[in-house]
């Protein structure tokens, strides 16, 4: 569902996020996100997949400025939002970018009612003129996410996991954000509830034309939900392509190994499964100076010049 006008909502350029620990000789630097670039266009869902520790969550958190980026630029609706921000830009970012968190229990304040949790964003951003208007907006959004107005006065502990995640979604959507960052929004939920929340998100993004950065580790879910997907490994995006391309013709050996490891609910397939293992020794990225290169239209791979030649000729590594 990529908009034909291709209006970028978020542009990330050479983003780096390093965490250091220790002092002096003991100082170690952890390169959680190491020089990644991508663009998310209006109305699309961009999926980020990878194993734990690959930097996908850090990427999301750095974009919304929960962390101070070490280096690189982030443009949101064309404005630079990394570095020092003026009050106006900060305000625009807090309204325009919202986040849905993984843990629906930890991410809701237990001492606030649903009404207060959802209404907080409206108050801070002064999106309503009076109390009544605020309540109307809250009731409205509650119904949109499949809850009822009676729920507004209750506290988070009175809800089940799936309902809490709906509250989290309502809180994120109330300010009509231009970009929603959904960080593993369903992985803490039960199987039957996961499908409900996934359907809800799917319906909402069509209805409201949401732009979503969808971060998850479950490849089947990311494939189902995203228009384009970036595969992260060791802090870098190693492959970026349209969802179908990525699954039908994966190029980078890491993507191949990841795809070959997905367990599918199909016993015949599982019995004949051929695992592909990713051997990091096949390329020496230190010396080869690889880059994210477009091999086919819209299909980027992180590769060295020699590898690019191979990919273009269709020779697998």
């Amino acid at each position: 569902m990529i908009n034909s006008t291709l209006q970028p909502v978020l542009e990330v350029k050479n983003l780096k996020q390093y965490f250091s620990s220790g002092r002096g000789r003991r100082k170690t630097v952890m390169k959680a996100v190491d020089d990644i670039s991508f663009t998310i266009y209006k109305g699309e869902t961009f999926g980020l997949v990878g194993e734990s520790g690959c930097g996908k969550t850090t990427t999301g958190r750095t974009i919304i400025r929960l962390y101070e980026p070490t280096d690189g630029e982030i443009y949101f609706n064309g404005t630079l939002i990394s570095g020092e921000l003026t009050k106006e830009i900060k305000k625009e970012v807090t309204r325009g970018m919202q986040m849905i968190f993984q843990d629906p229990i930890a991410s809701l304040n237990p001492r606030m009612t649903v009404k207060e949790i959802i209404g907080e964003g409206l108050k801070i951003n002064k999106l309503c003129r009076n109390e009544q208007e605020m309540l109307d907006m809250i009731y409205d959004i509650l119904e949109t996410v499949g809850l009822t107005r009676e729920h507004a006065g209750r506290y988070p502990h009175e809800f089940s996991g799936g309902q809490r995640q709906r509250i989290g979604i309502a809180r994120a959507l109330i300010t009509s954000p231009d970009l929603v960052i959904a960080d593993e929004p369903i992985s803490a939920l039960d199987v039957s509830i996961q499908a409900q929340v996934l359907n809800l998100l799917n319906r909402l993004r069509k209805k409201l034309g949401l732009t979503i950065l969808f971060i998850a580790h479950d490849l089947s879910v990311v494939k189902y939900f995203s228009d384009r997907i970036g595969v992260m490994y060791n802090g870098k995006i190693v492959e970026l392509a349209k969802a179908d391309d990525l699954y039908k013709q994966p190029l980078h050996p890491y993507t191949k190994s990841l795809l070959s490891a997905i367990p599918l609910p199909d016993p015949h397939h599982e019995r004949n499964r051929k695992r592909i293992y990713y051997n990091t020794q096949i390329h020496n990225y230190e010396a080869e100076q690889p880059q994210l290169v477009e091999i086919r239209p819209g299909h980027f791979v992180y590769a060295s010049p020699a590898e690019v030649e191979k990919y273009k000729k269709g020779i697998p590594l």
Partner: peptide
């Protein structure tokens, strides 16, 4: 069996939920 998408599920399909 059908509540989670598999790799063939198209994103325009609604998932059959419980």
């Amino acid at each position: 069996l059908v509540s989670m998408p598999d790799l063939d599920t198209s994103s325009s399909d609604e998932l059959l939920v419980i």
